[in-house]
Amino acid sequence: MAFDRMDSATYLASLLAKNFSRALQERSQKLGFAPGQFPILLELWAEEGLTQKQLLDRMDIEQATMANTLSRMERDGLISRRKHPGDKRAQQVFLTDKAKAMEADAKDAALAADQSLLSGFRRFERELLLEYMRMAIANGTRT
Rank of each mutant, 00 (worst) to 15 (best):
S21K: 11
A46N: 10
E62P: 04
M66I: 05
S80E: 11
F124P: 06
T10I: 14
F3Q: 07
R81S: 04
R5H: 13
E43W: 01
T141K: 14
E43F: 03
E26K: 08
R5G: 09
F20W: 04
G120H: 03
G140T: 04
V93T: 07
E125N: 00
Y132L: 14
A109Q: 00
D60R: 08
V93E: 00
A9M: 08
Q25F: 07
L41A: 00
K53N: 06
R122Q: 11
A46R: 11
T141D: 12
S28A: 15
A104V: 15
D108C: 05
L70F: 06
R81M: 04
R123N: 07
A9L: 14
A136L: 06
L111G: 08
N139D: 12
E47C: 03
Q91S: 12
M73V: 04
L42Y: 02
L70V: 09
R22L: 05
K107I: 07
R122Y: 08
D105P: 09
R5W: 15
M102K: 01
M1H: 10
L31I: 09
R123L: 09
V93M: 01
Q115E: 13
Q25T: 12
M102Y: 04
R27A: 00
K53Q: 14
D105L: 11
E43T: 07
A2H: 10
P85W: 13
T65I: 14
D76I: 01
A23I: 05
A106Y: 01
L128D: 13
E62F: 02
L50Q: 08
Y11F: 15
E127N: 08
S28Q: 14
T69V: 06
L129K: 04
K100F: 03
R27Y: 01
A23G: 05
R27P: 00
L70Y: 09
L130E: 11
Q63H: 15
M6F: 07
R82Q: 10
R5V: 15
M102D: 01
D108H: 10
R134Y: 08
Q92F: 07
A112D: 07
M6N: 15
R82H: 10
P39F: 00
T143Q: 13
L128R: 09
M66Q: 02
T51F: 01
S71G: 11
K98R: 13
Q25N: 11
L70N: 05
K30N: 12
R122M: 07
L15D: 05
G86W: 05
G32F: 03
Q29I: 09
A112Q: 09
E131N: 10
Q92M: 13
N68T: 14
D7E: 15
Q115V: 06
L78G: 00
R122N: 09
G49N: 05
F124N: 13
